[in-house]
Design a protein around this nucleic acid. Sequence first.
RNA 1: GGCGGCGUGGCCGAGUGGUUAGGCAGGGGCAUGCAAAGCCCCGUACUCCGGUUAGAAUCCGGACUCCGCCUCCA
Length: 463
Amino acid sequence: MLRLYDTIHGEVRDLATRDPGKLSMYVCGPTVYDLPHLGHGRFTLVWDVARRWFSFRGLDVRYVSNITDIDDNIINRAQREGTTESQVASTYENEWWEAMSRIGVARPRDVPHATQYVADMVSLIESFLAEDVAYVISDGVYFDTSCVADYGLLAGQPLDSLRADPTIEASQEKRSPFDFALWKFSKPNEPVWSASFGDGRPGWHTECVVMSLGLLGDGFDLHCGGLDLKFPHHENERAQAQAARRPFAQHWGHNGWVMVGTEKMSKSLGNFTSLTDLLERTDARAYRLLVIRSHYRSPIEVSPATVADAERALARLDTLARRFELPTFGGEQFVTQNDYVFSGRAKDLVTSVGVLLDEDLNTPLAVGELFDAVSSANTLADEGEPVEAAQLALAVAVVFGALGLAVHSAVHEPTRDDQALVSARDDARSAQNWAEADRLRDELVSRGWIVEDSAGGTRIRRG
RNA sequence: GGCGGCGUGGCCGAGUGGUUAGGCAGGGGCAUGCAAAGCCCCGUACUCCGGUUAGAAUCCGGACUCCGCCUCCA
């Protein structure tokens, strides 16, 4: 049984599915007004890993993740740059998918765009107004949080114990400082959709509740996102579903922050690193390894040192892949537990790692066991047990593959000249002409190759 | 003020009562023509103060630090 921490209950619980064998999963996606940053990279990796693991276990996962393509930040950027909102949105959505592709995050099965669901949002807001759960003031339509009895469930405290930030001037017209905008009336030169209660654009919290229920239906299984969405975003989505008397997500998952030093990385602190920049100078797999090496609910520290550490750890896996000529997995391809049949130590590995991952995605312990298995496979091979060694190595690749991490090194084809140097060196070595062999090795090294001798002769690879 | 979380060896990062998590870095060794990769060995850590226990990093109480959320945020 798959189990996962549920934010509302504050404990690890069975991940129940509404329909047998099928998991409906919604992950709050990005607002596309800037390059994706490391925090985006983490949440997409975390839930991509979850999705892949659930799929490995045989669930048919319907993974939905939205693109918020209308929002104040988009409008501000468009006005600042003298362009249109849709231009800003499409520019950064393209950047988003480019980055997702590079870190190996599989495309969601559905990608709803907020602007395509405005009509449904308008109907929902109309129904709220009809029941006086929402009210109109000068700048928009607001949701009356006091109408939802258990408002504060996700925040972990009741509404009356929340404190409105005194530094933010609350609108005098709002019934409560916690009431949130369902709809914002448009100002001149802003994008506008018509509605019976006044032309304008939808509020963020309304977008996600409409899209998740619209695609996954009432009482869908799992709703995920970054911990900072827990309150108020997810609380407000939930409040709207409650008010609409529609069963909402049955299970809530939240991932931890990316830290920079001791502070949370965030837009407001201005200490973010763009994912696009990281990928310019790092093997994208290193970031995935960094993410799965710690627990998804813990904060992770991303720095040049921790990234370099992960890259070196990755080299150990790549060496294994080279030694055993392992297949690669990842990208849009999902591995399932029925794809390979193992026996002996390989089977034991898949079983024990599976137990760890089934229990709230304990990837750090799983990674520990996998690295142990790397040593074991090398030892078995050294001790003349090639078949069992190869099985174990393959199991390592399969499990890492199930988590979306391809165990392989980038392929670099030697040129004809390089190959000539390699065979010349083999000749020198068989003639025991060590000086010449060393000279040829230096030559290859100067051409950027790492030179290793093996039973089959000189082998070269890129670092 | 309310709510939640953290404090582990040089670094990252697991671990809820007893045996080395794991990775990276460092030291020693095996192997190798010499290397590289690989393998073996090594550091014996757990914020502080009390307490419970035969035994605690792990449970309880307290203190301190740091971080986060409380109408921008993944």
